[in-house]
Design a protein around this nucleic acid. Sequence first.
DNA 1: TATGAATGAGGTTTCATTCAT
DNA 2: TATGAATGAAACCTCATTCAT
Lengths: 194, 194, 194, 194
Amino acid sequence: MAQSDKRRSILSAAVGVFARNGFYNSKVADIAREAGVADGTIYLYFKNKEDLLIQVFLDTMDTVLFEQETALRGITDPIERLRSIVRVHFAVVESRPALAEVITVELRQSSRFMRSTDLKPFGRYLSLMAKTIEQGKNTGQFAPEIDSRRTARALFGVMDELALEWAMVPDRHGIGEASDAIINLFLNGLRVRP
Amino acid sequence: MAQSDKRRSILSAAVGVFARNGFYNSKVADIAREAGVADGTIYLYFKNKEDLLIQVFLDTMDTVLFEQETALRGITDPIERLRSIVRVHFAVVESRPALAEVITVELRQSSRFMRSTDLKPFGRYLSLMAKTIEQGKNTGQFAPEIDSRRTARALFGVMDELALEWAMVPDRHGIGEASDAIINLFLNGLRVRP
Amino acid sequence: MAQSDKRRSILSAAVGVFARNGFYNSKVADIAREAGVADGTIYLYFKNKEDLLIQVFLDTMDTVLFEQETALRGITDPIERLRSIVRVHFAVVESRPALAEVITVELRQSSRFMRSTDLKPFGRYLSLMAKTIEQGKNTGQFAPEIDSRRTARALFGVMDELALEWAMVPDRHGIGEASDAIINLFLNGLRVRP
Amino acid sequence: MAQSDKRRSILSAAVGVFARNGFYNSKVADIAREAGVADGTIYLYFKNKEDLLIQVFLDTMDTVLFEQETALRGITDPIERLRSIVRVHFAVVESRPALAEVITVELRQSSRFMRSTDLKPFGRYLSLMAKTIEQGKNTGQFAPEIDSRRTARALFGVMDELALEWAMVPDRHGIGEASDAIINLFLNGLRVRP
DNA sequence: TATGAATGAGGTTTCATTCAT
DNA sequence: TATGAATGAAACCTCATTCAT
């Protein structure tokens, strides 16, 4: 418990510092101070600074995937499921701005070294969307010629870009509602033409 | 002229090196070697390493905007104009993978320090799309309730994500064609429901 | 007893680790693991890492001196005594290669910090040889002009260098026999010219 | 020239600092200060701290071998040649005490990593002695059953140990003369019994 | 303009040692 | 006695930047 607490506070401090300064401009010492531990303690829980970023990512994905799956429980209509996914995504972004910044901005850079790392959680996130789209094709709600995986990726692109815009603007207003229209637009595109 | 050549080869070397290693893992010395100049020479043309990245960005945007505007000459139908923008975007990505990697990956991160810099070129890129969407609303082709600017941003998100996916996958196949469908889908979403 | 056992296993682990990695590249934690105790436990028996090296040395010298003295019991002829000393020295080296490595390699360096420490055991080792040489002078077997102490030191140099050579070569063959000739040579040099 | 000067002053500073503090307790910053250069400059001439030690060794061996070979020019009698080698060895030790300390003390430790490095210069030093001994066997001055290489090693052991003793004792008196007797003794041992 | 040798600030990481349990 | 999680000082090395030529 105590140990897990320490790991958690280091991760949390890392998110804040990374968001503020960017990964490469963040000093391990700053993270340590913000986490209330000694510099060396960080290395008891993480292999190195890079690992810290990776763990932030994996940890976040775990949380988000859990929240997504929880929210989806009981929703069966593919369109509603997609809406839920989008809504939860923005809710997460809105409730943890720093986390959002790290994920949208720093993660990209890291994808460089993520190539050699475990990107599966991201794959699972995409799968969640892709499967739902596939399901929509099966129910006849979505056009059969749609490439589910790629479309899922495109949808992620939309969400990510809007999240990025929101994260970058200092005066923060609601993100979810404002984006509803665009998502609707996107979903409309999926629909079978009458 | 000779001076301009040198500036150009430095920029070009920078693109390659940044793409390969990422901004923070790129050494000025590597760029110098690849450009065939001495380390110090770089500082005759650029204020510092960061400035080099900014100039790569500004330069790229200039080029892309020029190519976009050239391609758009003579096209009036909003839908066709949007299609052209998407096509050219992917053409650029496909023909200069390194440039694409820098733009999709490093640029994000740079928004951080770009806050204090001139982001206008990116704004112009968005405007190009936003205006075309606006135009589509005026012609009655696109639904009037659409938020042009935000939709442009979403469209950029789709293109950027697909470009990123393409840039990250080692075995590179055509990107444009494969993405056509998704763009169609997106454009369909814009249309006024019959 | 149990306490003494722990001290002994720490010392023994230290010898192995020091031999493998050298003093400065040895980690206290490695020694602890190899000894089957916790890191902190080491500090219950030794002042610090340096002290551990010193104790290894003192301990080894105790053992070797004991073996030497035991072997010498009953031998009176100075030449035979010297031969015994050499034989036992190599026997120790051969039977505990790790110990030999620590003594030949690390000990040297330690003389630096041993200046402020108890070098007496090494002095006793030298004395053992010096006294035997002196005795040989008294019996008229060795030339009277010989400087016993310095000659003892030279003899130690021969043994140490041969031991070092042996310790450094991966494929280990007998050391004692091969070195007999050289020792004979050295002893011959001591003899009164006929 | 200027460049070579800088390399030389770094090496020379390194010898001093290593001798004073031992390799592992020497800070690169200290060497830099003593050499009158910036810390980073050292890395323009040497790969790392360890390389610095290796280069000190290689450099020294070059010098010593050169001095040995120069002194040997014109001497043909094997016994006289050996005497010359010993004399020059001690002369070097006496004239550069710091260098002697580094070579006798630090080098051993390094032999650990020297295993993977270029020990050839040391091999050449041994060869110089071994060949002379071999030559003495050919002239019938030395006993034919002598193992030249190993005996050379033993002789080196004597010289090294005496040098070490001298280097470790604070009040320094002549080393060469005092050691003459021992070397004589050693050489006597080599001689064919009448 | 161009060079590239030199600079030196600064950060990641290690690891001996401590101390609350 | 014994533990081992936590500490935090310390140092190697990198690399952007400068400046004498």
